[in-house]
Nucleic acid binder design. Structure first.
Lengths: 141, 141
DNA sequence: CTTAATGCAAAGGCTTTGCAGAGAC
DNA sequence: GTCTCTGCAAAGCCTTTGCATTAAG
C-alpha cells in the first residue's frame, strides 16, 4: 500500500538529523509510524512494538512519542477526546475523523484554502492550524 | 461583558424546546454555560455549580453535559488532550486554543471561508468542521 | 566511568458505570 | 405508583511520575 519504505538506516538518519540519540526502542517506534504512515495512538504503538518480538515498556512509548513530537519528527492529532494520535506526516494537512469508528484519515492541504481568519491575539504566536472534519458513518436510517 | 442575559424561564424554555426534562440541576448547569457564553470543562461546571450554594454531583454534571450535547443545546470542543470543553455557542464558529494556558476563545465564522475540502468518503455524512488555531504565548525569547 | 534511556509499578487526571435513594409526573 | 434523575463510590481509560536497572558514549 505504501510506496515509501524506510530502512533502519533511514530512521537512524532521521533521528540524528533531529538531534535525538538513537536507541533500539526509538528506532522501532519511529519505524512503526513511518512504515505505514498511519495515525497511531500510544496504545497502538505499544501493542505493535511488543507484537514484533521486541519488548518496549509503556513508559518508553510515551517518552519516545513525546520526544519525537517535541523534536518535530512527528506531530499530535487531537481529534478524539481521551486519546491522542501521532502522525508521521508533518507537512501541512488536515483530517477526517469518523466519530463512530474513531478512525482518522488525511486530507491533503494542497487544495484546501482557509481565508478570513482574524489576526492572532496580541502576545501570542501561531503554533498551527488544525482542521478536523467530523464524520458519521451512514447506517441504519 | 455579555449583553445577553438568560433568566430561569429562558433556560427552562430552552430545555423544553429540545425535549429535555427540566430539573434544578439541569437548569443550573445550562445557566452556568449560557450566562457567560464561555467554554467550560466538566470540572469547571462542577466547581461553579457547587460554589453557588447548590450541590451537584460529578455524575450529574457529566450526565447533563452529555445530554445537552446530544440534544444539540451545547457542543463539545476537542482541543486540549485530556479535557473536553463545552460550548454554549452552537452557531458555526472556530477557536483559538492557547497551548500554554489551555484557554479557548472564539473565532467568528462569518469572515472565515474554507475552500477545497475534498468530498466525504462514501458511507459517511458530515457531522461538523472544527478549526482550531493553536497559539503559544509569546514570552521569554 | 558518567550520563542518559528504559522498565516497572504506582499514582494522577478525566470520564463512565452501577445501583440505591430521591424526585418528577 | 411508575419512570426518570441524582448522588455516591468504585472502576476504567489514558497518561505521567519516581526510582532502580540497564544501556550508550
Amino acid at each position: 500500500m505504501t510506496p515509501l519504505s524506510y530502512t533502519d538506516a533511514d530512521i537512524v538518519a532521521l533521528l540524528g538529523t533531529h538531534g535525538i540519540q538513537v536507541t533500539s526502542q526509538r528506532v522501532l517506534i519511529a519505524q512503526l509510524l513511518f512504515q505505514g504512515m498511519t495515525h497511531l495512538s500510544a496504545d497502538d504503538v505499544h501493542r505493535l512494538a511488543n507484537a514484533g518480538g521486541q519488548q518496549v515498556s509503556k513508559a518508553t512509548v510515551y517518552n519516545t512519542l513525546g520526544l519525537l513530537t517535541e523534536k518535530g519528527v512527528i506531530r499530535q492529532v487531537i481529534a478524539d477526546p481521551g486519546r491522542v494520535f501521532y502522525d508521521p506526516n508533518t507537512k501541512p494537512h488536515h483530517h477526517f475523523f469518523d466519530v463512530d469508528t474513531g478512525k482518522l484519515s488525511d486530507i491533503d492541504a494542497s487544495g484546501v484554502e482557509i481565508n478570513g481568519l482574524p489576526s492572532l491575539p496580541t502576545g501570542t504566536r501561531l503554533e498551527g492550524v488544525d482542521v478536523i472534519v467530523r464524520l458519521r458513518s451512514t447506517k441504519h436510517s
